[in-house]
Amino acid sequence: MTESAGTTPTPPGTDLAAAAPRRPRHRGRMVPVPLLVPALIGLAFLLLPLLALVIRAPWSGLPQQLTSPEVWQALRLSLLCATSATVLSLLVGVPLAWLLARTDFPGRGVVRALVTLPLVLPPVVGGVALLLAFGRNGVVGQWLDAWFGITLPFTTTGVVLAETFVAMPFLVISVEGTLRAADPRYEEAATTLGASRFTAFRRVTLPLIAPGIAAGAVLAWARALGEFGATITFAGNFPGRTQTMPLAVYLALQNDPAAAIALSLVLLAVSIAVLAGLRDRWMNAS
């Protein structure tokens, strides 16, 4: 006690007895200034733009802006594509995560690195790569066109593919982490009861990691909803077909800033809604 009082500058009036062992140490003590100031700057930097969006929003004209068919078209397309991309990511991403977490094959580390590449790759580069693969003259695209008459670029399906490309790694990483944290001995227990490896996965592992899958899916969905670079490169910007909300916002900013703000507010609202939905999982995790 005397030691801590001697080494720590204690503000006058602080009850030393109250600050004694039972309490966590950091409580009731000054936050060091070299940490406090940058922290506040960071906080302000993150919040200020959002605040500006709300301050400058054309509140009076908002109802009219938001009821325009273009907005609803873009929003509807965004939600549809983001959801489709999430479903697609779930269908192939969860098995991929399982493969990475539960099996051992040569080059697994490399595969894992490649899977996470889209996380750091500039989305525009992803769009170009998608064009070269699935474009009309792409490595795979030319055969899709010749054999099945399927064209992917500049279609709604193209939007879904671009969003899946960018969003799926979030899901895979999240689910893989959950799988690694999950006790693999439950799968063993299932196996000794006569379950095949797939049955063990379906009936035991999947329910156990469901929360992790849900969190990964939300992350992927949010990432898909905001996708811009890969989408505009691979799918273009056709209203009603490939023009999602971020694209519409960008376009509106060129000739109708008020509309851009309105659209941005809608996306902000959706994001906040998602955060609120995740509140129980993440906000309380700390």
Binding site: E188, T191, L193, G194, L208
Partner: peptide, 20 residues
């Protein structure tokens, strides 16, 4: 014989009852 086909029952140390 793979484990799922063996006529063997196991009681694991911490039981590993499926929590769900």
């Amino acid at each position: 014989t793979p484990p799922e086909s063996r006529p063997v029952g196991v009681v694991f140390q911490d039981y590993l009852l499926f929590p769900h």
